[in-house]
Simulated scan of single mutants.
Amino acid sequence: MSERWRGTAVLAVALFAVNVVARLVTRFGFDGDDTAADRVSLGMFMVIGLVLAAVAFVWGRRRPVAAWGADMAAAVGVALLLTVLVGPLLVGDNPFGGGAGTFFAQIWLYLAAAGVGVLLGYLLLTALGLDHRSQSLKRYAELRASKPRRVVRR
């Protein structure tokens, strides 16, 4: 069971690390420039979406959607909490300093980027016919088609 949660924990830490890097770049590279900070945030959300698309593509090949979907939701939830509550503290900001609107906007944008990333990764996997369900159906069809010849009694 620990093997299953190791991948989830690594994904959560990787998503949080992307956020920390974006916050540090914004803090030390573009301090006070809101336009650059917005671009760095947009880039961060794109990287998060791409990471989740790649993970959905890889995990979707090996396991059914119900198994990896729950793991991915847990990883995104933990990474979201770390991003919203711990991330601002790392650069000396207050998580609620921008007000409720900024706080909840960050949550919705994170969830939107995560949802789009997972959806794109899984749709690409399904379109290529490489997902777990398609492969199971392919193996079943091959097994049924290769039935041994029936012996005829006389």
Rank of each mutant, 00 (worst) to 15 (best):
R23I: 11
R23G: 09
L24W: 10
L24D: 08
L24Y: 12
V25K: 03
V25I: 15
T26K: 07
T26M: 15
T26P: 03
T26N: 13
T26F: 05
R27W: 10
F28E: 15
F28W: 14
F28C: 04
G29A: 10
G29C: 09
G29L: 06
D33W: 14
D33E: 15
D33V: 11
D33G: 12
D33L: 11
D34M: 13
D34Y: 10
D34E: 14
T35D: 14
A36L: 14
A37T: 13
A37H: 11
D38I: 11
D38T: 12
D38H: 11
D38C: 04
D38V: 09
R39N: 15
R39V: 14
R39D: 13
R39K: 14
R39A: 15
R39G: 14
V40A: 02
S41E: 11
S41T: 14
L42P: 06
L42Y: 13
L42E: 13
M44T: 06
M44F: 07
F45I: 02
F45E: 00
F45A: 00
F45P: 00
M46W: 13
M46L: 15
M46V: 15
M46G: 13
M46P: 02
I48P: 00
G49E: 02
G49Q: 01
G49K: 00
L50Y: 02
L50W: 03
L50N: 01
V51K: 00
L52D: 01
L52Y: 01
A54T: 11
A54W: 07
V55T: 06
V55Q: 01
A56W: 01
A56H: 03
A56I: 08
F57N: 02
F57I: 08
F57L: 14
F57D: 03
V58Y: 07
V58A: 11
V58T: 10
V58D: 09
V58S: 05
W59K: 06
W59S: 05
G60W: 01
G60T: 10
R61W: 09
R62A: 12
R62C: 02
R62K: 11
R62T: 09
R63N: 05
P64Y: 06
P64N: 09
P64Q: 10
V65P: 03
V65R: 11
V65G: 03
A66I: 13
A66Q: 12
A66T: 15
A67R: 09
A67P: 02
W68G: 00
W68C: 00
G69Y: 05
G69H: 04
A70P: 00
A70D: 04
A70K: 05
D71S: 12
D71I: 04
M72F: 06
M72V: 15
A73L: 15
